[in-house]
């Protein structure tokens, strides 16, 4: 019986497609349920991913039905094999390509973007616009208590006033990962996050400059909680608000690593 299936191209094709579709559905579905999807896309698209996961499942079932039907009809009319010649030349390379996301997703331990990705991007220190004027919620920051403001809120605050003095003396408590490059002094680093509006393809790094005597001891990519006070300082030849740290605590990477605009 198995032999008979294996020599019939249609049965093999339908079987492989069924398997790949069901696996894709399972893959997308588990990305959402395991929370890994938050490393990839903005949370407002999670439902879409879930729906797509179910959709692939349904598509897989439609193939499975054909696959079952095929074996019955094979016996019935073997004379004309009417696989509609669509140029669906399903090659093994083609299937391999469609399975690549599964291999990469399941075999590579998933990790959000980190310092490596910061290094070839333009960092926004609050000098470029980060929130649109027209976007809803543009003024919400004012209502957030200082202790609960995240990096993006602080940058928005700095940008709105355009003056580092405006933040001076305020207390901040923020979470981010450690980033540094040649511009940073030995006692400086950046507590950084990525903003993602759709998927990580549009990720843009934002960060606050932190001063901390033992700054050099913190490894790059380490997630930290920084508590301190803003002072006006000079970074890279520019007058900027600098967060002078009072305590720095190593933390776990938050389940939602990115900030959303």
């Amino acid at each position: 019986m198995i032999d008979k299936w294996l020599v019939n191209w249609n049965v093999v094709e339908k079987g492989v497609k069924t398997a790949v579709l069901l696996l894709l559905g399972m893959f997308l579905y588990t990305r959402v349920t395991s929370g890994v999807v938050s490393y990839y896309i903005n949370e407002r698209f999670f439902t879409l991913t879930l729906v797509a996961g179910v959709g692939f499942g349904v598509l897989g079932v439609s193939y499975f039905r054909q696959w079952l039907g095929r074996q019955e009809s094979d016996a019935a009319h073997d004379h004309h094999h009417e696989h509609h010649d669509h140029d669906h030349d399903l090659s093994w390379v083609g299937v391999l390509i469609v399975m690549l996301p599964l291999l990469l997703g399941w075999l590579v331990p998933p990790r959000p973007l980190g310092a490596t990705a910061v290094s070839n991007r333009e960092i926004n220190f609050g000098t470029d616009p980060i929130k649109s004027v027209a976007a809803p919620g543009g003024n919400e920051v004012m209502g957030i208590i200082a202790g609960e403001r995240n990096i993006l809120d602080w940058l928005g605050e700095f940008q709105r006033s355009g003056d580092p003095v405006a933040l001076a003396g305020q207390r901040a408590d923020v979470i981010g990962f450690v980033y540094r490059d040649a511009r940073f002094g030995a006692d400086e680093f950046m507590v950084a996050r990525f903003t993602v509006s759709c998927c990580v393809a549009d990720a843009a790094p934002v960060g606050l400059i932190v001063r901390w005597p033992d700054g050099a001891a913190l490894p790059t990519d380490q997630w930290v909680e920084v508590q301190g006070r803003f002072e006006v300082g000079v970074f890279n030849g520019r007058s900027m608000p600098i967060l002078v740290a009072e305590t720095i605590t190593k933390t776990e990477q938050p389940p939602q690593p990115y900030l959303h605009l």
């Binding site: 990305r31 490393y39 990839y40 959709g55 598509l59 996301p101 973007l113 990705a117 998927c199 990720a203």
Partner: peptide, 27 residues
Amino acid sequence: TAQFQTFVTIFMGIFVEAVPFLLAGSV
């Protein structure tokens, strides 16, 4: 490995974001 990690994350991002739309278009 760090570069490969970054590549995989960005690839997965584009793929996971785009594939529901391709699926919808195909249906």
